[in-house]
Computed example of a mutant assay.
Amino acid sequence: MIAQRKDDHVRLAVEQQQQHSGRNQFDEVAFVHHALAGLDRAEVGLGTAFAGISWQVPLYINAMTGGSERTGLINRDLAIAARETGVALASGSMSAYFKDPDCADTFSVLRKENPGGFVIANVNATASVDKASRAVDLLQADALQIHVNTVQETVMPEGDRSFSSWAPRIGEIAAGVDVPVIVKEVGFGLSRETVRRLEGLGVRVADLGGRGGTDFARIENGRRRLGDYAYLTDWGQSTAACLLDAQEAGLPVLASGGVRHPLDVARALALGASGVGVSGTFLRTLLDDGVSALIERITVWLDQLTALLTMLGARTPAELTHCDLLIRGELRDFCADRGIDPGPFARRSSSPDLPNETTGNTR
């Protein structure tokens, strides 16, 4: 039953990638072009550091799968790609492992194939501290990701229906494990109020997981006989909106959801993300063309991200928060509704009071 659900998720996620319109709210974020801002490429490095964590590049393969024979093979290939490119790697939800320990190797392969990499275990917000610790131990994980997904659970035929215990349980896990805890939305976004609450619970990092990529409400609705939750398609805030909303939230943030190419990575970093996660785009590459193609694609992305930093005059990913940005369209309307002034983002390079330095996230 669980294995079949995991395979269904992969199949439906790939179908979404094939049908995606190609546009999202990252397209409403534009860099102001300064023709003489560029650097020498040799001056640029991609290292990023946040919450006591250091990554050699600000890109990571975000939580996808595990729990069945097929998804174990996918995890093996994702781990190989992470090993060969130096990106961090997060497991899919490890709930299946707690229910059936025989599927442990579909998750532990992430560490087996990537012994020196940064690997993140993944549990849901109902896991006990003991289960969270077991997940960390199984992967010899460097961090623990707790995913929150009330919308997905609501639409999932066999999903949870009780959510009031999630916040206190997150606090218990954060206090009870020996690695940094990251809380991640699965595609509906974290508001600034939620990020602030997570900080109070002892969470170290928030993965904003916004709308724009894989839509798990749509996936779960596709598993329902009547498809009667179609009206929840596109629920939530986009990743770009979440990044703007989180400017004063206090925690370091990661950006995932709807990241389509290296320019989106640069946009997310410029909006304050310490790292940027990709799932669906990389999954489709892997399933369509194999692990060698995925390694090549990630390598190209990192090369092009370096080129963009060079052109924009940013020596590090963090320095992209000094670049001038124009916020347009519905994203600008979101800012107005949430009391965010988009004007200073367009003048950051010439202002001593940079938004990210005076009110932004601690890196």
Rank of each mutant, 00 (worst) to 15 (best):
P101L: 08
M1I: 03
L39G: 06
G313D: 06
D215L: 06
D245Y: 04
Q304P: 04
Q18N: 05
P262E: 03
A246S: 15
G22L: 07
V195K: 00
V155W: 05
A35N: 01
V278C: 10
L243W: 03
R260I: 08
V129P: 08
L308D: 00
R347G: 11
G22H: 03
H9Y: 09
Q17Y: 14
G86M: 01
W301Y: 15
L190R: 03
G22D: 05
T85C: 10
F98M: 13
L354A: 12
V109K: 01
V205Q: 06
R224H: 09
F216E: 04
I146E: 00
R83T: 06
S93H: 04
A121E: 00
R332H: 14
V119T: 13
L73G: 14
G227F: 02
S68E: 00
M1F: 11
D341G: 10
T233M: 01
V186L: 12
E248D: 15
E158G: 07
V129T: 10
L138V: 10
G67L: 06
G38W: 13
Y60E: 01
C242W: 00
E220W: 01
Q4T: 07
E193R: 11
E43N: 08
R332D: 14
G67K: 01
R83C: 11
C323Y: 00
G290M: 11
